[in-house]
Nucleic acid binder design. Structure first.
Length: 1031
RNA sequence: GGGCCUGUAGCUCAGUUGGUUAGAGCGCACGCCUGAUAAGCGUGAGGUCACAAGUUCGACUCUUGUCAGGCCCA
């Protein structure tokens, strides 16, 4: 069996019959099941983690298609954003924005455009190879005019609602590259560095010799200090140290003792009381500011975990910025975008902020002025530019914001209607993120992206937000040409006349955050509202039932989808969402190009087949961190796919031999085994449906795996003989009908999970017999099932049978008596009712024993030991339980026997009934016995002459069968046997001659005196030679 | 530094509202079967449920803390 090869045949079949598109077109008019494809970027290759998402994204659409829904499968690609620009910069050798301008923005974005689809084919191929039905022909892409227009339309809605505004944002900034960095880029560049941290004395304005002690790890920011912050609730002490008075958080005192030296606490009050107190700036050059500054602010973000509990504020930090804004402090930036100290920094003017000596010089200067309490070295993580390895500085830059905080409550309400898998994301990671929502900075000072459609008048400052290309043309007084590229730099050349003053309006130069593109995808994929038909499509396909992405999207796509959809429709655009974890390699390391541990999905599919890869992704909960290992794929093959295939091929082999064909009025469920497997099939259908409804692929897959095991290792194994019998009796017909039905239904139930192998089986098992059948299993209907077939009583009985068998085998194993040796009897205790004849004969046959006996009175075999049933007695007895339980454990066999008979007795002053005890059976000496739970099995191991002969005969058959196999005979080939051997063996063979002939399909068996060509055999002390010839 | 998650057999993972002896697969050992054969099956040995305290008659399960790992954010 070559699964990868089979995959290709199936893909060819799908291609030829256009199955992917027909899963949609043949469900026209059916209820819609809606899923959104989050647009991946295609300027990088897909890896195995993407394939996990592809596998999951494919599962429910296939399932719901079979359930009779129409599922659109539109693909989408993210074609804007920083990753693309970074690739372009790197390949063009551009290091900064300045370089880009020199190179030419038009040439630069042309290059970006060329790279965006670089790996689109690789993505399409990988998606196809894993068997995902995704319409990669009719895709949406964020760079198209249609899509950009939807961006504009959404922004116009926001604009009209007053939700767009221009503000400042603190961004990590690389002075050398002249670029601000995204959070993602910044995260890549954190390094542990050792800096000098300073404890600085800020002198109070109105109180002599009194200082706030503030702590900083970035001395250069002191040059831009505008305020100090304390925590209003923490206690601050004033210390007398010599003639100085020092103010700091009491909690920090112990840590700073050494630095401070001898002190006396002379005052103690909460930080809140210092609010508004003014201090003198450290340097004169900081003095003359336009606005009030240099006073104390109370804010709870200040902690006493390190430093002094007093924080100095400068415009180079996010919390600083927030407080500076909230308190209308002046925006002082004495270090500029180049990283250089500005003209208002006195002797430091012109120095580079990251120059190590600058810190030292500032330190010396402060010390000279008596403003330094102390210094210490500190190791902390600080962001560096991942490109040029230079220290970043946080810089306040202008940005456009979407006022998401104004509808935070509505987002929280919308979140309540989303089913998260796993559930904890809802109020955990995602809910917390929403609770702490701040306005979304939607603009980027970059080049390759959707242009922000806002024009500002250079004269009067009037602003317009343009909602479509047509509107833009109307405002300009001439239509925009169809082939006009809306990207920078071209769009920037379009100016508008100002309605207010007639001046010239120029576009705001920013582009949109590419997450904004992703968030508008429910509208953008149809080009809503400008594209023809887009309104109908949107209304029909909103909101979606299901999306699936990796966990890192909580602040990415999941958030932006919710923000946009809440803003526009006051609800979430998705109902169910699976968050997958990221996939790591076998040793738990993240896969990355630099480590060289990235696994190519196509290669892995070509090695093991796509079904094995899918199965692997489905079998564990997708949100637990998964280590990808090829060994597990092999395991899935061995445990599931190969047995699956073998079950199918077993059926086909015999159906061919018997020329069996499916027919109307199937004669189902004659034999107990048949009724059992049909009941289990019904269980499987119910379990898979329930699991799929709960977006639980792992449980559904587990059920399929369990069923395949039951089918192959019990139903088929126990039924094999029913298929060999050469007479066409009724039982055989029923066996065929049943197995056929089971295989067909199992195949359909498995189709969404294992689309390739099930397609092959469908073609051969269903369509080959009936050309009227659908062209593909993926166009076929989900099995309707029949609750009548469920027989839980029988399932329970079969579980008992398998338990009995298992225990008895274990006993045989211990006694070292192989199954071929027949044994006279087993004794079973502890099952509620006797087994039916058919089940009993299953047990006898499986174990090769002659008789099964039941024993109610087990006392011959066992003595009893009792334990308290804690679940029953616990709530009733409470604290008295321990004592009672001990007394119960002390009961002897007689007392327990008595309790069983009377049903109730008093133990340690407590009335206890039979049901309050859990009985354990302890085998008595002299029996070959074992119990598990309530079930006990004893095996009689006395072997008499007759049983020994029977054993020898079976060994004889065994050897003949091996010879048949060695000679590669057809299963129906008849033979003649010649045998030469010892007396006991001959007697055994004679005694069981008919049995041997039937089993081995032998026409005759002759004893000969000499057999040089024969195969030597040895059974116990018996030796002989056998020769097999076909006739 | 903050938030969320995870820690169960050598490995990969299950474990339902707290309740009898914590399960499965792989690997390992032993055996079986061979008329489904890149085979298959059975049995067995492996666990102080990361650690500690608390709540409780009773904790893998609930609470708190510690340690380790992951993700996101700073």
């Amino acid at each position: 069996m070559n699964f990868p090869e089979l995959d290709h045949l199936v893909m060819k079949l799908w291609e030829e019959r256009n199955i992917r598109n027909r899963t949609v077109s043949e469900r026209e008019g059916c209820p819609d099941y809606i899923t959104y494809d989050g647009p991946p970027g295609t300027n990088g290759k897909p890896h195995i983690g993407h394939m996990m998402q592809s596998a999951l994204k494919d599962l429910w659409p296939r399932y719901y298609t079979m359930k009779g829904c129409r599922v659109l499968r539109k693909a989408g690609w993210d074609t804007h954003g920083l990753p693309i620009e970074l690739t372009a910069e790197k390949e063009l050798g551009l290091k900064s924005k300045h370089d880009i301008l020199t190179y030419g923005v038009n040439k630069y974005i042309d290059y970006c455009r060329k790279t965006v689809f670089r790996y689109k084919d690789a993505w399409t191929q990988a998606i196809k190879r894993i068997g995902r039905f995704l319409d990669t022909d009719d895709f949406y892409a964020t760079l198209t005019r249609e899509y950009i227009q939807t961006d504009w339309w959404v922004l116009k809605q926001a604009w009209d609602k007053g939700l767009l505004y221009q503000g400042h944002k603190i961004m990590p900034f690389c002075a050398r590259c002249g670029t601000s960095l995204s959070a993602h880029e910044t995260a890549q560049g954190y390094q542990d560095v050792t800096d000098i941290s300073l404890y600085v004395k800020f002198p109070l304005k109105d109180t002599e010799n009194t200082y706030f002690i503030a702590w900083t790890t970035t001395a250069w920011t002191l040059l831009s200090n505008v305020a100090l912050a304390v925590n209003p609730k923490l206690s601050y002490v004033t210390l007398a140290v010599g003639s100085d008075r020092l103010i700091l958080a009491e909690d920090r005192l112990s840590a700073l003792k050494e630095m401070i030296g001898d002190y006396k606490i002379i005052d103690r009050k909460p930080g809140g009381e210092f609010a508004g107190v003014h201090y003198r700036p450290l340097w004169d050059f900081q003095d003359n500011l336009d606005q009030d500054a240099h006073f104390v602010i109370a804010d709870e973000y200040v902690t006493a975990e390190d430093g002094s509990g007093v924080v100095h504020l400068a415009l180079y930090g996010e919390d600083d910025f927030r407080l500076i804004q909230a308190n209308s402090l002046p925006l002082v930036r004495n270090v500029d975008r180049e990283g250089l100290c500005g003209p208002k920094t006195g002797k430091f003017s012109g120095r580079y902020f990251a120059d190590e000596n600058l810190d030292v010089d500032i330190l010396k200067d402060l010390a000279a002025g008596g403003l330094l309490l102390g210094k210490e070295k500190i190791t902390h993580s600080y962001p560096f530019c991942y490109r040029c390895d230079e220290r970043l500085l946080y810089y306040a830059t202008s940005s456009w914001f979407l006022r998401t905080s104004s509808f935070k409550d509505r987002m929280l309400a919308a979140n309540e209607d989303i089913n998260w898998y796993p559930a904890h994301i809802k109020h955990g990671r995602f809910g917390n993120w929403l609770e702490n929502n701040v306005d979304w900075a939607i603009s980027r000072s970059r080049y390759w992206g959707s242009p922000l459609p806002i024009w500002t008048c250079g004269q009067c400052g009037h602003q317009e937000c343009v909602g479509s290309v047509r509107e833009l043309g109307e405002l300009r007084g001439e239509p925009i040409a169809d082939d006009f590229d809306l990207h920078k730099p071209y769009i920037d050349e379009l100016t508008l006349p100002c309605k207010e003053c007639g001046g010239e309006m120029v576009r705001e130069p920013e582009v949109l955050d590419s997450w904004f593109n992703a968030g508008i995808m429910p509208w953008g994929q149809w080009g809503y509202p400008a594209a023809p038909g887009s309104r109908e499509l949107f209304e029909n396909q909103y909101p979606s039932d299901f999306i699936c992405e990796a966990i890192d999207q909580t602040r990415g796509w999941f958030y932006t989808l919710l923000a946009i959809s809440t803003m526009l429709t006051d609800r979430s655009s998705f109902r169910n969402v699976i968050c997958t974890s990221l996939i790591s390699d076998e040793s738990g390391r993240k896969m990355s190009k630099s480590r060289g541990n990235v696994i190519d999905p196509i290669m892995i599919c070509e090695k093991y087949g796509a079904d094995a890869v899918r199965l692997n992704f489905y079998s564990v909960n997708p949100w637990v961190a998964k280590r990808f290992s090829e060994d597990e794929l092999v395991e899935g093959l061995k445990q599931v796919l190969i047995p699956y295939w073998n079950a199918y091929s077993f059926f086909v082999t015999y159906a061919r031999v018997d020329n069996w064909k499916p027919h109307d009025g199937d004669a189902l469920a004659g034999h107990t085994l048949d009724r059992w497997i049909l009941s289990r099939l019904e269980w499987l259908r119910e379990t898979v449906e329930t699991s799929m409804n709960n977006y639980d692929a792992a449980s559904a897959t587990g059920a399929i795996v369990t069923f395949i095991d039951e089918l192959t290792n019990w139903y088929i194994r126990r039924s094999r003989r029913r298929f060999w019998k050469s007479e066409d009796d009724q039982d055989k017909a029923v066996a065929y009908d049943t197995l056929y039905r089971v295989l067909c239904d199992l195949n359909r139930l498995s189709a969404p999970f294992l689309p390739f192998v099930t397609e092959t089986v469908f073609q051969n098992l269903e369509r080959a017999y009936n050309p009227e059948r659908e062209d593909s299993v993926h166009l076929a209907a989900w099995p309707a099932g029949d609750p009548e077939l469920r027989d839980e009583h029988l399932e329970e009985a079969m579980r008992e049978v398998r338990d009995i068998v298992s225990i008895a085998r274990s006993l045989r194993n211990e006694g070292n008596i192989r199954v071929r040796q027949p044994l006279p009897e087993i004794i079973v205790c502890g099952i509620p009712e006797k087994l039916s004849d058919e089940l009993e004969s299953l047990v006898l046959d499986e174990l090769n024993v002659k008789r099964l006996q039941y024993r109610d009175d087990e006392s011959e075999l066992f003595s009893y030991r009792a334990k308290a049933d804690f679940k029953r007695l616990g709530p009733r007895l409470g604290g008295k339980l321990k004592e009672t339980a001990a007394a119960i454990a002390d009961l002897n066999d007689d007392a327990i026997q008595q309790l069983i008979q009377t049903g109730e007795m008093e133990i340690a002053g407590v009335k206890v009934s039979r049901d309050d005890l859990i009985l354990e059976r302890v085998p008595r000496e002299g029996y070959w016995v074992r119990s598990e739970a309530n079930l006990t099995v004893a095996v009689d191991n006395r072997i008499d002459e007759q049983l020994r002969r029977e054993w020898l005969a079976r060994e004889f058959v065994h050897h003949v069968q091996n010879l048949r196999k060695e000679a590669d005979l057809e299963v129906t080939q008849r033979i003649v046997i010649e045998f030469n051997g010892g007396e006991e063996m001959r007697d055994a063979v004679t005694a069981h001659l008919e049995y041997i002939k039937v089993e081995t399909l032998a026409n005759s068996l002759e004893f000969v005196t000499d057999l040089p060509a024969g195969k030597s055999i040895k059974v116990a002390d018996q030796t002989g030679k056998i020769l097999v010839n076909s006739v």
